[in-house]
Amino acid sequence: MAEITELFEALTDPDFPFLRYALIAGVVGSIPLGVVGSYVVVRRISYIAGAIAHCVLGGIGAALYMQEVFDAQWCLPIYGAVLSALAAAVVIGLVSLYAHQREDTVIGALWVIGMAVGLMFFAGLPVYVDPMSYLFGNILLISPHDLWMVAGLAVLVAVVGALFYNKLLAVCFDEEFAELRGVRVKFYYLMLLCMTAMTVVLMIRLLGVVLVIALLTLPAAVAGNFSRRLWQMMLLAVLFSMTFIAAGLGISYIHDLPSGPVIVILAGGVYLATAVGSRLRLRG
């Protein structure tokens, strides 16, 4: 119990803001994670979301390189991340729409190229910057400015997701039929990928390029076991995501463990348990 008390003291300590920022970023960020993640899971594009996330490292590397080598201080890593994520979303989206053969090979190639380009930029920097914090997240890097951006994204995704819910649902369920009903399916598909890209970018501080995909897909996958409609899945996914992040941050603080991996292992463990549980329930 002493640890729990200590945790709450840490959360309210004015000289110790990073844990509070991480919790706020995680709880608010769970809204886009849960909503976009549900679309990603039902549309079966988690592989595409993974490729977009890894391409972000290229943009971060390029932005850091601009800052260090060309002294372009305005060129923050977040700008590079946003640009590369949106570019990756559009390119990968077009590839998956038009390159019908070996789509997975092309996307896999873009995935590693984006990441490799990023690591080349990191290697070329005159000072050493550890890519680990971008790969696996570092809550010490979260600033109040980031919180505003996460909140802005949460509002944007919630509004777009609610307004175009029926059309996005139709596109995810039966693309051909949606097209015949006059829905511009390619546009909505690319919009979905761009929302995925923005969600990935803003959660990178907390979870990193590699781990963010876990929190995009696992809460939605767990929620899918308990939902019969897509909006229920989204709502539950948001709640699961909030729970995983809050509990993961608490455990990592108390036991002095890296927060990103703790959150992901927690989410993955619950997912496996519910997957096994629902199989057993079906048999029995």
């Binding site: 039902v42 029926n166 139709a170 369920f173 039966d174 949606a178 009903r181 899918g224 409609r229 897509l230």
Partner: peptide, 12 residues
Amino acid sequence: LFPVTVTDVVLS
């Protein structure tokens, strides 16, 4: 496993 009801499908 797509979470839709019969009504959701028909409404589309």
